[in-house]
Simulated assay, not measured.
Amino acid sequence: MIEFKPRAASYLPDGKAVLIPLMAIEPVPRFTTHPKDWHGFDRERLVRLLKGFVAGDSIEPVPLFEMPLFEFAHSPHRYRVLNGLHRFYGSIAAGFSHLPAVI
């Protein structure tokens, strides 16, 4: 991934998706104590995902929750990841600016 340069704002989604700026999504904490094999991640899954980014594979969009206005007013983040933390953090690691999402 060191020499990888994104050619688009996000990875290629495999279905209908909207592009959401990563800065608008609340970072979800990952814990090294979580029962995964590498810093709270499933290393094999993350590497497979990053290889898919490099190859230009179409990958499932991430389901996001749009936070209620009263909660959003107190946070710079408008969305929360429901499922897809590897895709969220992998997108950041790859240098993408947006995440394909389904709201």
Rank of each mutant, 00 (worst) to 15 (best):
Met23Phe: 01
Gly95Phe: 08
His39Ala: 06
Ala55Arg: 13
Ile103His: 00
Glu66Gln: 15
Leu50Glu: 13
Ala8Tyr: 09
Ile59Thr: 01
Phe70Gly: 00
Leu49Thr: 10
Met23Cys: 09
Leu22Asp: 10
Val62Thr: 03
Phe96Thr: 08
Thr33Ala: 15
Lys16Gln: 07
Leu64Ala: 10
Leu85Asn: 15
Leu19Ser: 01
Leu64His: 05
Asp37Phe: 11
His39Met: 13
Pro6Ile: 04
Phe4Ala: 03
Ala101Phe: 00
Phe96Asp: 12
Pro76His: 13
Asp42Met: 05
Pro100His: 07
Arg30Ala: 00
Ala94His: 06
His74Thr: 11
Asp57Val: 00
Gly40Asn: 10
Arg7Asp: 05
Thr33Asp: 15
Leu64Gly: 09
His77Gly: 07
Ile25Asn: 09
Pro76Gln: 14
Arg48His: 13
Pro76Met: 11
Leu49Tyr: 15
Glu71Thr: 04
Val62Ile: 05
Ser10Glu: 09
Leu49Gly: 09
Phe70Trp: 11
Pro6Leu: 04
His77Cys: 15
Met67Ile: 10
His98Leu: 07
Ala101Met: 03
Val62Glu: 01
Tyr11Val: 01
Arg87Phe: 05
Arg7Tyr: 02
Leu99Ser: 06
Ala94Leu: 05
Ile92Pro: 04
Gly15Lys: 03
Ile2Asn: 11
Ile20Met: 03
Thr33Tyr: 11
Met1Tyr: 06
Ile25Lys: 08
Phe96Gly: 05
Gly90Trp: 04
Pro21Tyr: 04
Ile25Tyr: 03
Val18Arg: 08
Lys36Met: 13
Tyr79Cys: 02
Pro6Trp: 10
Ala55Cys: 00
Gly52Glu: 05
Gly15Phe: 00
Leu99Ala: 06
Phe41Arg: 09
Asp14Asn: 15
Gly40Lys: 07
Pro27Trp: 11
Glu66Gly: 01
Met23Ser: 14
Phe70Arg: 13
Pro29Gly: 02
Leu85Trp: 08
Leu82Val: 14
Tyr89Val: 10
Phe70Gln: 10
Pro100Gly: 04
Tyr11Glu: 04
Pro29Arg: 12
His74Phe: 14
Leu22Val: 08
Phe65His: 14
Ala93Lys: 11
Arg87Asp: 06
